[in-house]
């Protein structure tokens, strides 16, 4: 599978739907690095879907420019443009009369891949989203659980090796546990492929979990654009602070790694009897161990204890991140 993602630039985008009394997108400019996973976050009706749909030409802006990989999209036939951009929507939109494999093959067929290549690709994609090809290839969408349908939706969007993937509340319809698993899978896929991903959600925790960068939107405008930690630690307006509940320290702890906050062990063997967390785990998990009654938590890297965390360390890390 090819890796890499294209940069996307939006310049002063304005969208007003016919008959609407106010703009759905009201002067949005954004510069998205190639290979980034950017989350558009904001309440329902703030224009997230509309912004996404201007990028693949489903909505035509009244003014402004959109550049994908440096090229303006107005010159490209919309169907041509969309076949190069993955698109996943909340309601999944799998075609109920087509098997899983046929659904995944839609775009490769539109662009004329041969049958053998499509079949190889379909199986590889099912593996990528962790569905056993031999079991799932020939099933119909209605024979899948909600989470499995979302996986197929992602596989279908990635089928023709797009270097840009647009996802509109893709995990909105699945339950909380499946949702967490899908978020982890998406991060893994993003790291494996390096595709530029634009992900829409109104769920703050989801945004914080998966984003490299968060775009906070309100009433058709971008109010803040930055890393999750930055947006949480320095909300640009009271609206952002309230939306993200930025005062919630536990939320910020979720963005910090235990391995980054630990101190060296005072002496070898000191960790005997302490609870353990992994260096990759967040400080929230370390705090949870401390609240269970321990004074110190051992931080592991692989099989060895690499450091120690106390209440003070957690507090210091939180202050340093602000």
């Amino acid at each position: 599978m090819i890796a890499g993602g294209v940069p996307v630039r939006l310049e002063e985008i304005h969208v007003r739907y016919p008959g609407a009394d106010r703009a759905a997108i009201d002067g949005v400019s954004l510069s998205i690095e190639g290979g980034a996973l950017v989350v558009l976050l904001g309440p329902s009706g703030c224009g997230k879907s509309t912004l996404l749909r201007t990028i693949n030409g489903l909505v035509a802006p009244q003014s402004g420019r959109i550049l994908i990989d440096g090229r303006e999209i107005t010159g490209v036939a919309p169907e041509q443009l969309r076949r190069g951009i993955g698109y996943v929507i909340q309601a999944v939109g799998l075609f109920p009369h087509m098997s899983v494999a046929q659904n995944i093959a839609v775009v490769p067929e539109l662009i004329g891949w041969d049958a053998a290549k499509i079949r190889t690709r379909t199986d590889a994609l099912l593996e990528l989203v962790r569905l056993d090809p031999t079991r799932y290839r020939d099933r119909l969408p209605r024979q899948l659980s909600g989470g499995e349908q979302q996986r197929v939706g992602v596989a279908r969007a990635l089928a023709a090796e797009p270097r840009l993937l647009l996802m509109d509340e893709p995990f909105g319809a699945v339950d909380a546990i499946v949702r967490l698993a899908l978020q982890d899978e998406l991060r893994r896929i993003h790291e494996a492929l390096g595709t530029t991903m634009l992900f829409v959600t109104h769920d703050v925790d989801e945004a914080l979990r998966i984003a490299d960068q968060i775009v906070v939107m309100r009433a058709g405008q971008v109010v803040q654009y930055g890393s999750p930690l930055h947006v949480l630690a320095r909300p640009a307006t009271p609206y952002v602070a309230e939306l993200l509940d930025a005062a919630d320290s536990v939320r910020r702890l979720q963005l910090l790694r235990s391995g980054d906050a630990m101190r060296p062990l005072p002496s070898a063997g000191a960790a005997a009897g302490w609870p353990h967390v992994d260096a990759a785990h967040t400080l929230r998990e370390a705090l949870s161990r401390l609240l269970d009654g321990a004074d110190c938590v051992a931080v592991d890297r692989g099989d060895t204890v690499a450091g120690v965390l106390t209440f003070d360390d957690v507090r210091r890390a939180l202050a340093a991140a602000a």
């Binding site: 693949n56 489903l58 169907e79 041509q80 443009l81 969309r82 076949r83 190069g84 698109y87 929507i89 909340q90 309601a91 999944v92 939109g93 799998l94 075609f95 109920p96 839609v106 775009v107 539109l110 279908r156 969007a157």
Partner: peptide
């Protein structure tokens, strides 16, 4: 949503 998906995929 189904029609949307079809158009969004480039049909």
């Amino acid at each position: 949503a189904t029609v949307d998906a079809a158009r969004g995929l480039g049909m």
